[in-house]
Amino acid sequence: MSAITSKIFNAAYAKDKFENFLFIVPAVLIFSIFYIYPFFDIFNLSLHEWNGIDLSREFVGLQNFQELIHDKVWWMSLWHAAFITIIALTLQNALAFALALACDREIRMKRFYMVVFFIPPVLSEVVVGLIWQWILNAGMQNGEHIGLLNYWLAKSGLPQLVHNWLSDPATALPCIAIVHSWKGFGWGFIMLLAGLRIIDRELYEAAKVDGAGSLSIFKNVTLPMMVPVIFVVVVLTILGSMQVFVLILSMVGHGLVYHTEVPVTRILVSMSETNRFGYACAQGVTFGVILVMVSVVLKQISNRMKQE
């Protein structure tokens, strides 16, 4: 211990720390100019009432935040985003993990699968919106269902399941969540696969020599090794799902009453429909703080899991 404390006064030691710091200087520089500066501007704006154009901005203090606390639609939109996120976290990530595990082993057509699973993320939202509005279309023409899903349900003897998928509040959001999960699982897939590939193969061999079954290997070797990567994937899933909106716009327009509102569409409404930039910024800041809190909690959980 004393050796270390004496080192603090050592010029070489200080130089060493400074060198270490230099590694992050490029990142910090770019970040300060293009993120921190706008951030403070946005935070400042959230304390004002401003329509985006006026030369003067009226200072209103925390009034925007006060109003936000009582904005029922806003909290509902957060719940909707949380719902989409929960579906994505379970459905999308379970699928991604299963696929990644399958592709981690020596199987045929591995390269083919890897390419194919990455198609949905590459596809433009325009295509995704068009295709899914066709699949979920509830209309009829000449006595036949236009929508692929309804058509298929009717043909396969399940006409009672034919449904108005996107204009029923009970199914609109789940449909959006499923489409979103479908579009996003490719990301989880390649990240998890990259994580699996980085695990030392000798660990598996050693476990096998010890006579562990595949389930036990998964539980005792794979899963613990994967915790950090899973954490990243979970964080990214939350981030991507909480901020989904292009897909919603392309599937249901401005939305089905308030049943498909998410925070980002609410922010867009504040910005372009009600022209309240200050309020939009307050929404953005609040939303961000919530996300940061969620990720802090997640970090705690993952730390605990690592220790176990």
Partner: peptide, 22 residues
């Protein structure tokens, strides 16, 4: 009212009319 009218972006509504569905 056509099925799903409340959740239709206008370009899809235009498709429906142009394709003689409504």
């Amino acid at each position: 009212l056509a099925e799903g009218i409340v959740a239709k972006p206008n370009k899809y509504a235009e498709q429906d009319f142009a394709l003689e569905r409504v």
